[in-house]
Design a protein around this nucleic acid. Structure first.
Lengths: 210, 210
DNA sequence: TTTTTTCTGTTGCAAAAGCAACATATTATG
DNA sequence: CATAATATGTTGCTTTTGCAACAGAAAAAA
């Protein structure tokens, strides 16, 4: 699935050559963008990690998506409603590519190399995104906190080709990502340890069975 | 976003002309496909409606996605795990296009018109799918059954450009789609009616305030 | 049309999750 | 280094949700 294409190198070569595209850097905790209706921004995370965060009217915070290298985000993928605020927050120093989508798959009038390479690679990047989203839905539809945790751990374990793996999120963020109460999640985590299903030291976790 | 391109007409013209593609019809409740690892099937729903359904080890049924005209599905979008079974079930009579993806965005060796048109349209179809999935995640991350119901109703209301709209799913299926217990959902639905927030007659619903 | 199946609506009870509040540990920041 | 801020870990209590079971309505099948 992964062609090994390196957007990062590509961008550093070409980003200045296309006037429709902006490249910006952000430091940790800075807000990269807010989703607003009527705009059609497409962003690519070139380096660093960031979260798409929603704050609802009750003040609940949800990590809607967690982004790392090569992730796509922006209003293009979203029907933005006015009911809640969607922000992308940098979790570490980030480089992000912005552009406004008219017809994403149509080439730039300038016929520039940048757009050519981008449109060749977009379908694959988007397909990865779809897979990612489906995985997330699979987690969210699990009925109990325990199953959500185990589902998530099992995924990380598979990706890491190892029963041990590192948590890429803080526990606070993990709760927001799995859309459960943090204290309830902590309680369940404790039970999983007590039942010998997982072992945890620091942010390393070992999944014993399943 | 919607180009108005009519796949249905296109398929009836061209489907027989490409040997890598199969078109099949299904009657209600038939199983269209099961997701299996190692295959890379891409399917397009040409007409009818269908559900992607997951049965987990506890016997819980979840409607992972609900498909209508022009929906894309298949293993291409999924990291299939062995933990649970994923089936696509026809909810009405359906016509479905199947093909095995090698490189979806590469043209057929035969250089056939079919693949050309398909690859021109796939990015847009996939983009719609991403929007759909994000919407679903938004619903699933809501913390209470009430918020899930209201979020879903609000969406249907917006789509229908009207405070009144028809439920496209049975209540049983809606519970599976929102990933909540049916009886709990019924209880909440009753409360929403009592609070005057919604009115319901048959499968028509009116949303009184947001 | 009758019978069977599926869907809707309801309830008591048990279990799980959420809330609030706090202590401690760890990590940033002046 | 000292202090502030953030993250982790824990608990009692309340609320919500899930489970199980049933009855009636509607739809599908015989």
């Amino acid at each position: 699935m992964n062609t090994g294409f390196n957007l990062e190198n590509f961008i550093s070569d070409f980003s200045t050559k296309c006037n429709k595209v902006q490249s910006k850097t952000f430091t940790k905790n800075e807000i990269i963008t807010t989703y607003i209706q009527k705009r059609n921004q497409l962003c690519i995370l070139i380096s660093g990690t960031a979260d798409l965060v929603r704050y609802d009217l009750n003040g609940n915070r949800t990590i809607v998506e967690h982004f790392s290298k090569n992730a796509l985000f922006g209003e293009v993928f979203y029907n933005v409603t006015t009911n809640n605020e969607l922000l992308v927050e940098a979790k570490s120093n980030c480089t992000v590519l912005f552009y406004i989508y008219d017809d994403m798959f149509q080439e730039c009038k300038n016929n520039c190399k940048f757009h050519q390479v981008l449109s060749e690679n977009l379908p694959e990047l988007i397909l990865n995104k779809v897979t990612e989203l489906n995985m997330r839905i699979e987690l969210l539809t699990k009925r109990s906190t325990r199953d959500k945790l185990l589902g998530y751990f099992s995924l990380l374990s598979t990706r890491n080709l190892n029963t041990s793996f590192e948590l890429p999120l803080s526990l606070t963020d993990l709760a927001d990502y799995l859309s459960v109460d943090r204290s309830a999640m902590m309680r369940e985590l404790k039970l999983l340890k007590e039942d010998g299903i997982i072992e945890k030291s620091g942010n390393m976790i070992r999944l014993n069975r399943n």
